[in-house]
């Protein structure tokens, strides 16, 4: 936490002007444990909570967090939720916790978090906080000895596009934005205070084996893989639905263009005959004609998100399959011995 190069306030004030890009999210072990506790206790229900911390240059420090109660689908509770949040912040400030919101965390099931809601929440946060981050924790994967913690933010170019709500193919090409560019994953650093580090070292000597190792060497990953595949297949279905929408759009677009051409030719022929008869030519464009009404292009956001999901599932499958290979070879070697 101590900055090796001491800076004067003037320098700090001067550098503040240029917003350096967010490079690292530094989480305290305390926040990690709190997130894990909250997410695990309520799993498989999905829960959220607020992250508190400081924004220091290109590092976003997450020093504490608090959980949100499970939201009920009720308008009245909205105000209550806001009150809860305020109360909590006030209380935490009194005990000298950084009470600066830097984002939120949420649990997920097998990494199925890329939804429109997430983007909306993000945009809401972004309005108030210049730099915020979303921490995603997957309790289902922790049973395999993986600390499935991810820090995400929306990319700037995507946010611009989302504000204008313009997801046509043309705009996307212009911005050169593909589905990979919606979310940016930010590397996570973990920090602990010296006191905690001392306590952990004192309480737990170097144990030769930990729960983590047992979980990792667990051979039965099939249920996990199966569910992953299930989700993947579902997503594929969704994606093909989206594709059908596009195909439909293109078909109607080309039909319309054909109609436009036909109308134009007719008009031109008419104009030629009017010219021959010495009359004024009719205008070649007629906005009132239904043929010229543009066909609305479906938004590509959904298909982008689904694509992201699929990519995520593929990554998970690859990761787990990789682990399985090593485990199987290990088993083989053990057996041969």
């Amino acid at each position: 936490m101590a900055n090796p190069t001491a800076r004067s306030f003037l320098q700090v004030a001067a550098t503040e002007e240029v917003a350096s890009p967010l490079r690292v999210v530094q989480i305290e072990g305390l926040a990690i444990l709190k997130i894990i506790k909250h997410c695990k206790e309520f799993s498989p229900a999905l829960v959220t909570g607020q992250l508190l911390g400081l924004d220091v240059g290109s590092v976003l420090e997450v020093t504490n967090c608090f959980p949100f109660p499970i939201r009920e689908e009720d308008e009245e509770n909205e105000a209550e939720g806001a009150n809860y949040q305020l109360d909590m912040m006030k209380c935490l400030r009194e005990v000298n916790v950084d009470n600066n919101t830097v984002g939120w965390y949420q649990s997920t099931l097998l990494g199925s978090f890329q939804t429109v809601e997430l983007i909306e929440t993000f945009m809401n946060y972004q309005e108030n906080i210049r730099r915020c981050v979303c921490i995603i924790y997957d309790p289902s994967r922790s049973s395999q000895g993986v600390l499935a913690l991810k820090a995400l933010k929306l990319s700037d170019s995507f946010m611009d596009l989302y504000r204008t709500n313009n997801f046509t193919g043309e705009k996307l090409r212009e911005k050169n934005l593909s589905w990979v560019d919606i979310f940016e994953e930010i590397p996570i650093k973990v920090s602990n205070s010296a006191l905690i580090s001392a306590f952990m070292t004192d309480l737990e000597g170097d144990a030769p084996v930990t729960q983590c190792d047992y979980d990792r060497l667990q051979l039965s990953t099939n249920p996990f893989m199966e569910r992953n595949m299930d989700f993947l297949i579902e997503c594929m279905d969704d994606l093909s639905m989206e594709q059908q929408k596009f195909q439909f759009y293109y078909r109607s677009l080309s039909r319309q263009q054909a109609q436009q051409q036909a109308w134009l030719q007719k008009r031109r022929a008419e104009n030629a005959s009017r010219k021959a008869a010495g009359e004024e030519p009719l205008p070649e464009e007629d906005p009132s004609n239904p043929v010229f009404k543009p066909v609305p292009e479906p938004s590509r956001l959904d298909s982008f998100l689904i694509t992201n999901q699929i990519a995520n599932y593929c990554n998970q499958i690859n990761g787990v399959a990789g682990q399985n290979f090593s485990k199987l070879y290990l088993m083989k070697a053990l057996h041969e011995n």
Binding site: I32, G145, V190, N192
Partner: peptide, 20 residues
């Protein structure tokens, strides 16, 4: 233990270990 002592014991860890 499930988180791993390695990241809770030291004062700073640069990267979370991935699957492999």
């Amino acid at each position: 233990e499930q988180v791993g002592y390695d990241i809770l014991k030291t004062t700073s860890v640069d990267k979370l270990p991935n699957d492999l």
